[in-house]
Amino acid sequence: MTTFKLIINGKTLKGEITIEAVDAAEKEKIFKQYANDNGIDGEWTYDDATKTFTVTE
């Protein structure tokens, strides 16, 4: 398992979430669903070196 981080830079929601997953593709799906469930629609980036997804509205 690898630890992945999501950084949220939303208009109404900001924060960080850290979760373990098998791979980045699995985690991306979970993070995007979390963002969608919380009304966050923005630009996504991924840094493989730090295993960090960022979504910015």
Rank of each mutant, 00 (worst) to 15 (best):
T3H: 05
E43C: 14
A21K: 05
T54L: 05
N36A: 14
D48I: 06
W44L: 04
T45R: 05
D23S: 08
M1R: 09
I30R: 01
T2E: 08
G15I: 15
I8K: 00
T18E: 06
E16P: 06
T50G: 02
D23E: 06
E28N: 04
G42P: 02
N38P: 03
I30W: 13
I19S: 09
G39C: 12
L13N: 12
I30Y: 10
I40M: 03
T3L: 09
N9E: 05
G10K: 03
M1Q: 06
E16N: 04
K14Y: 14
G42D: 03
I40D: 01
I7M: 03
F31Q: 01
T3D: 04
K5Y: 14
I40H: 03
K27L: 15
T56E: 05
V55K: 04
I8D: 00
M1C: 15
T54A: 02
E26K: 04
A24D: 15
I7L: 03
A25Y: 10
A35P: 01
A35N: 03
W44N: 01
E28H: 11
K51M: 09
I17T: 03
F53G: 01
I7C: 10
V22P: 10
N36M: 12
K5G: 01
F53A: 05
K51S: 08
K29H: 09
A24C: 15
G39A: 10
T52R: 01
T2L: 12
Y46P: 00
E26V: 06
K32T: 10
K11N: 12
D37R: 05
A25H: 07
D41F: 13
I8F: 14
E26F: 08
T12M: 09
Y46C: 10
F31T: 01
I19A: 06
A21F: 12
V22G: 07
T56H: 09
E57W: 14
I17V: 06
T52F: 03
N38F: 13
K5C: 14
L6K: 00
T45G: 03
V55Q: 04
M1P: 08
Y46F: 05
T12L: 12
G10T: 15
K29E: 12
K51F: 11
N36D: 10
I40G: 01
I30M: 06
T54G: 03
D37G: 03
G42I: 08
F4Y: 12
F4G: 03
T56K: 07
I30H: 05
K14R: 10
N9C: 15
E20W: 14
E57G: 07
M1H: 08
V55S: 02
T2I: 14
G10Y: 13
G42S: 02
L13R: 03
G39T: 02
I8C: 15
E28C: 15
I7F: 05
E28D: 10
G39N: 08
Y46Q: 00
I7N: 01
M1L: 11
D48L: 04
T12C: 15
K14W: 15
A21Q: 05
T50F: 02
T18D: 02
I40F: 10
T54Q: 03
F4S: 03
I40Y: 06
V22E: 08
N36P: 02
T18R: 09
T2W: 14
L6T: 01
A49Q: 09
A49L: 12
F53C: 13
A25N: 08
G10S: 08
Q33P: 01
E16I: 14
E16Y: 09
Y46N: 00
G42F: 08
K14H: 14
G10V: 13
T3F: 14
K11C: 15
G10E: 02
E28Q: 05
T50E: 03
I19Y: 05
W44A: 01
A49T: 09
N38V: 11
Q33V: 05
T45F: 08
L13E: 13
E57V: 15
D47Q: 02
K27Q: 15
Y34I: 14
N36E: 12
E57C: 15
E57H: 08
N9T: 08
T50M: 02
V22T: 09
I30N: 02
T52P: 00
V55T: 02
I30P: 00
G39M: 05
G39K: 03
I7P: 00
E26G: 12
A25G: 08
E16Q: 05
K27I: 15
D48G: 04
Y34V: 03
G42W: 15
I19D: 02
G39F: 08
Y34E: 02
E43Q: 07
F4V: 06
T52M: 03
T12F: 14
D41V: 12
A35G: 04
K32P: 01
D23C: 12
I19W: 13
T2S: 10
D23V: 06
N38Y: 12
D23N: 10
V22D: 08
K5S: 08
T52K: 01
D37N: 06
I17M: 08
A21N: 11
L13V: 13
E57D: 05
I19K: 01
E20M: 13
N9K: 07
